[in-house]
């Protein structure tokens, strides 16, 4: 831990530059941000908080990769509301005003044996970061990536290079398996030592439900609504085994068999009307409504 920090910044430069931007599919972009100090420390499972501009909100994004030599970190962002849409509108060489991290506890990476990793939607990207580390730690890694439909799949090729087996699932069956039900057979047929699920809540919940009867330790990566992301506000509280935890400092990883997913889902919708209003306001070019 006590190594020399090449990236130690003493002044606020307000320069978190987008070094690379790549559209993976429409509305899902991969960004590499110049953030040397974050790159030096970033581990799978951790996240950053960024704020685009003066009037912007702070949003958490799970880290999907770090390049110490280049001093960059990778995030993949799905345009779902005003802030993510605005981020999607930025180009290479543009900067965001604030970026802090790495936040949260790193995922546990060790030799577990056979690890099943399930990544839904945009979360296939941060899962890839973790799969790579698990593979390097000597695990047999079986990966399932899923999306609503074939055209929404991301990171298939990248994933193939770092895992032992890759399966694809889509909600509508346009590619690979239809839904996650095939997982039941897989769990019956082979020994899995650990499962990791990242993605929409339904995906994480389904995986946790399937693994429960086999007693497979199942980790889910939760990103509730956050503001500071450092344990100060408690917006991100989740109930784990009946106990309230803060996802930002106690997580993001939690025991999937102990999470109150219903509560999490309700809390994620807390600002739905405001988010809609904000989006409309943005689409109208910020003119008063």
């Amino acid at each position: 831990m006590d190594r020399t920090l090449s990236g130690l910044r003493e002044e606020t430069t307000n320069l978190y530059e987008i070094v690379t931007k790549r559209e993976l599919i429409p509305h899902i972009n991969l960004f590499e941000f110049s953030a040397e100090e974050v790159a030096e420390k970033a581990k799978p499972g951790q996240f950053i908080i960024l704020r685009i501009d003066e009037k912007g909100e702070r949003i958490p994004l799970t880290i999907a990769g770090a390049d110490i030599a280049e001093g960059t970190i990778t995030v993949v962002c799905h345009e779902v509301g005003k802030t993510t849409k605005k981020l999607g509108g930025l180009s290479e060489a543009d900067c965001v005003l604030d970026l802090v991290g790495p936040l949260g506890k790193p995922a546990k990476i060790e030799k577990f044996g056979t690890v099943l990793c399930v990544g839904g939607g945009v979360m296939a990207a941060p899962l890839h970061f973790q799969v790579k580390a698990l593979h390097e730690a000597g695990n047999k890694v079986i990966v399932i990536i899923g999306a609503r439909t074939e055209s929404q799949l991301i990171f298939e090729n990248e994933m193939r290079q770092v895992c032992d087996e890759l399966y694809v699932a889509t909600d509508d069956g346009t590619k690979g398996y239809k839904g996650l039900d095939f997982l039941k057979d897989m769990l019956r047929e082979q020994k899995i030592d650990r499962a990791i699920a990242m993605g929409p809540i339904v995906t994480m919940k389904t995986v946790a439900e399937f693994t429960r009867s086999y007693g497979i330790p199942t980790i889910v990566n939760l990103i509730p609504i956050m503001v500071d992301g450092m344990g100060m506000c408690g917006a991100c509280r989740v109930t784990i085994s009946g106990k309230t935890m803060f996802a930002c400092v106690d997580g993001l990883d939690f025991d999937g068999h102990q999470v109150d997913f219903e509560e999490l889902m309700a809390r994620l919708k807390m600002y739905a009307p405001q988010e809609k209003l904000s989006f409309v306001f943005y689409e109208k070019g910020g003119r008063s409504l």
């Binding site: 920090l5 003493e10 100090e37 420390k41 604030d98 936040l103």
Partner: peptide, 20 residues
């Protein structure tokens, strides 16, 4: 000097600051 967006404990640790 004021350096923002830096969570000591995560971005840097105290031992690292003392070494740097």
């Amino acid at each position: 000097k004021v350096r923002l967006n830096c969570l000591v404990g995560r971005t840097y640790t105290i031992p690292e600051l003392l070494k740097n």
